[in-house]
Simulated scan of single mutants.
Amino acid sequence: MRRILASSFLGSAIEFYDFLLYASASALVFAHAFFASLDAVCSRSRRRSSFSARSSR
């Protein structure tokens, strides 16, 4: 039972870290790297849609 709980906790911690890392990258990097030619509003909306597509899987 301890092994199951430990592996479940570890898996959840890794998944949370992955989610946090991707959210930070989408907010800070993606708009400038992928949508640089667009205006600020359009860039922001595309950045949010790419994040929501990632988090809905």
Results as ranks from 00 to 15, higher is better:
residue 2 R to H: 05
residue 1 M to Q: 12
residue 32 H to E: 14
residue 57 R to A: 08
residue 30 F to L: 10
residue 29 V to Y: 01
residue 9 F to T: 09
residue 16 F to N: 11
residue 45 S to E: 14
residue 13 A to I: 01
residue 45 S to A: 12
residue 46 R to F: 03
residue 1 M to E: 15
residue 14 I to P: 00
residue 23 A to R: 14
residue 32 H to R: 15
residue 40 A to T: 06
residue 32 H to W: 13
residue 51 F to K: 00
residue 4 I to P: 00
residue 31 A to G: 12
residue 40 A to S: 09
residue 26 S to V: 12
residue 24 S to Q: 04
residue 20 L to G: 02
residue 22 Y to C: 05
residue 19 F to D: 11
residue 9 F to R: 11
residue 20 L to W: 02
residue 10 L to K: 10
residue 53 A to Y: 05
residue 36 A to G: 10
residue 54 R to L: 08
residue 30 F to G: 01
residue 1 M to Y: 05
residue 56 S to F: 02
residue 1 M to G: 15
residue 16 F to Y: 09
residue 19 F to C: 06
residue 34 F to K: 15
residue 49 S to A: 08
residue 12 S to C: 07
residue 13 A to D: 02
residue 53 A to L: 13
residue 17 Y to S: 15
residue 7 S to G: 02
residue 49 S to W: 04
residue 54 R to D: 00
residue 22 Y to W: 10
residue 22 Y to K: 14
residue 53 A to M: 04
residue 8 S to Y: 07
residue 13 A to E: 05
residue 37 S to D: 15
residue 21 L to I: 06
residue 32 H to C: 04
residue 8 S to G: 09
residue 10 L to W: 05
residue 19 F to H: 13
residue 13 A to M: 11
residue 31 A to I: 03
residue 29 V to C: 00
residue 36 A to D: 12
residue 52 S to Q: 12
residue 52 S to T: 13
residue 55 S to F: 14
residue 48 R to F: 05
residue 41 V to S: 13
residue 15 E to P: 00
residue 6 A to Q: 13
residue 19 F to T: 07
residue 2 R to G: 12
residue 47 R to D: 01
residue 31 A to V: 07
residue 38 L to P: 00
residue 20 L to A: 15
residue 56 S to P: 00
residue 23 A to Q: 06
residue 32 H to I: 04
residue 12 S to Q: 06
residue 21 L to C: 15
residue 41 V to F: 06
residue 29 V to T: 01
residue 15 E to F: 07
residue 9 F to L: 10
residue 14 I to C: 10
residue 40 A to I: 11
residue 28 L to C: 06
residue 25 A to C: 04
residue 57 R to L: 11
residue 47 R to M: 09
residue 56 S to G: 02
residue 3 R to I: 14
residue 57 R to E: 04
residue 32 H to M: 07
residue 55 S to E: 12
residue 8 S to V: 12
residue 24 S to C: 08
residue 44 R to N: 08
residue 11 G to Y: 03
residue 22 Y to L: 05
residue 47 R to A: 04
